[in-house]
């Protein structure tokens, strides 16, 4: 399992322009990724798209790429409601659209989890590099350990 990125895709029986509209128009975005009311979107690189997640907070995502109708990406600071996403506090969400037989293939990749959590005071320091190997490997390896040993970690030594 990769812990740095999540990749998902879906086949949609609609033309690519239609999918692009759903992906980027305020009324649609508010429906599939908000609280139902139209989302505030400044649709340009460097623009902000505001996603209202109700009790979880309001997220100010930073739009990175707008290439209709093929690519749309933004940075999303899910751990930091209320502040504009930066490279340090957010993951990158990238949508790609591809015309396919009978409709459109829509792909989403959310990446940057390995760098998402930076220990306080270590931003920009050399310690940052240690994330690249980071917890990805640890979780994978210890996951095997979990499956192999189960509850025994708490049992007394023989």
């Amino acid at each position: 399992m990769s812990t740095d990125r999540i990749e998902r895709e879906i086949k949609i029986a609609a033309p690519i322009e239609r999918v692009w509209a759903v992906l980027t128009e305020p009324a649609h975005v508010g429906t599939w990724f908000g609280n139902g009311s139209p989302a505030e979107i400044d649709l340009r690189p460097g623009g902000v798209m505001v996603l209202d997640h109700g009790e979880h907070g309001t997220y100010q995502t930073l739009i990175v790429n707008v290439d209709p109708p093929r690519a749309f990406s933004y940075r999303w600071a899910a751990g930091y409601p209320g502040v504009v996403a930066t490279e340090l506090n957010s993951t990158l969400v990238e949508f790609t659209l591809e015309a396919a037989a009978g409709g459109t293939l829509l792909r989403v990749v959310e990446s940057g989890f390995d760098e998402l959590v930076i220990p306080a005071g270590r931003e920009g320091s050399a310690g940052f590099e240690s994330h690249s190997e980071g917890w990805t490997g640890v979780i994978a390896r210890l996951g095997e350990y979990v499956e192999g040993r189960d509850e025994s970690s708490l049992s007394p030594p023989e």
Partner: peptide
């Protein structure tokens, strides 16, 4: 991480419904 992936599945399904 699995939960986050599942949420994307739900959002993509919502996009699909709207687009279709």
């Amino acid at each position: 991480m699995d939960t986050l992936a599942e949420r994307w599945d739900l959002r993509l399904a919502a996009i699909k419904r709207l687009a279709e």
